[in-house]
Amino acid sequence: MCYSAKVRAEYRAYVKEFGAHLTLDEYVKEYWEQFGDEWVPKLPQAIRAWFDDPTVPGQAELHEVVAAWKARTIAKTETDLFAQVKRKADAERALQAKITKKAQEDLRISTNKIGHFKTKLDDLKRSELKPRDSRIYPGTLVPVIVWEDGRRVIRFMRYQCRLPGWNEKTERQYPGTYNARRDKLESSWSQLFGRRHGIILADAFYEHVPRHKLEQRELGAGEAEEDVVLEFKPRGIGTMAVACLWNASPVDGRPDLLSFAAITDEPPPEVAEAGHDRCIIPIKRENIDAWLQPDPKNVAASYAILDDRERPYYEHEIAAAA
């Protein structure tokens, strides 16, 4: 399962390299004005940075919404940080008088939360982007390229697909729908495969693997299994156009929920040897338009595009903390 990826962050890459268009006025109307700013924190920080410049035509409203959300979030986080600093000081004074379980727990929890809130504030206040700012996870809003009105268009979609006919309750029972297995495309995903195709632009993907499998050995006697996160980067092809399926789910009183899943397949040898059993599918650039305009009566053509994929060598390393 591809639980995380590093998406291409630069807006110009979508426009200049991949010819995709984003109508900001329409985006404001359909999402920001009706949903308020509850979607802002679901955008990766590198994507929120698209709207940092109020002088760019069409971005003024988005800039104002993001700036207002950021100001409120900074104020709340500073208040939360102050409360935990006080809690820690109170716990330290209490422990000097008498060691109690409550004071020890208050000290432990407040210390952890102080670190969390300081990191959050640093992220909110800095303007320089870091690699982790481009990471996506299930639930994140991601720029997805689809085909509309005879051209490639960017739509922001949630990374976890709500299948046709599902509601919020149904999808909670199936939390793994951020990936679509290639061998299930004509069963579990049949209502989307051959009908609603998209791509995301990604520079790397991440997987959880057991350390002993990464090291190609058996667990030692009494050894507990340890999980590590690996970052896989394609060698030689640059940005990957990752094959996806998407859906638009009606939501009462609001715009449709747009959501997607990345298609995965059996891994190449180097990914399998690193301990993982799935891999995303980067399609060739010359096949993008055909992929985005599928014929539901000719799924063989869609399979052919998936098979005629980019086949880079995936280098891996233990991922830095997100």
Rank of each mutant, 00 (worst) to 15 (best):
A224V: 09
Y314F: 14
R195Q: 12
K184S: 12
G36S: 07
Y178V: 03
A261Q: 05
R195I: 06
P282G: 02
R235H: 11
Y174M: 14
L258M: 10
R108I: 09
P131H: 09
T239Q: 06
G238K: 06
A5V: 08
P267Y: 04
M157P: 00
G58Q: 01
Y3M: 11
A20C: 02
E168Q: 12
A49F: 05
S187N: 11
R93D: 13
K125N: 06
R132T: 11
R217M: 05
Q160K: 13
V15S: 10
R309L: 09
F117S: 00
E128L: 12
Q173F: 10
A300N: 15
A272K: 14
F260I: 01
E273C: 06
P268C: 15
A13M: 09
Y159K: 02
L258G: 02
T264H: 01
L24H: 10
G253I: 07
R162P: 00
H212C: 07
R217W: 04
D295G: 08
E266V: 15
E10G: 00
L245W: 01
G198I: 03
N167A: 08
K130C: 06
R93A: 15
C244H: 03
A204D: 03
W147Q: 08
A300K: 15
S190Y: 10
Y11S: 06
A243P: 00
E231P: 00
T239I: 08
S110L: 01
R162F: 10
A301T: 11
C161N: 12
A301N: 10
E26N: 11
D90T: 11
E26I: 08
K213H: 11
K88H: 12
A248C: 07
P312C: 06
E171A: 13
F35H: 12
I136Y: 03
L258C: 04
S4I: 01
F51M: 03
P57Q: 07
Y27K: 07
F51P: 00
A272W: 05
L185W: 02
M240K: 04
A224F: 09
I47P: 00
E26T: 13
D123H: 10
R235T: 14
A13P: 00
A202Q: 03
Y31M: 13
V229T: 14
A49E: 10
T79E: 15
T55H: 09
D52A: 13
I263K: 06
R87P: 01
P255C: 08
P175M: 07
V228I: 14
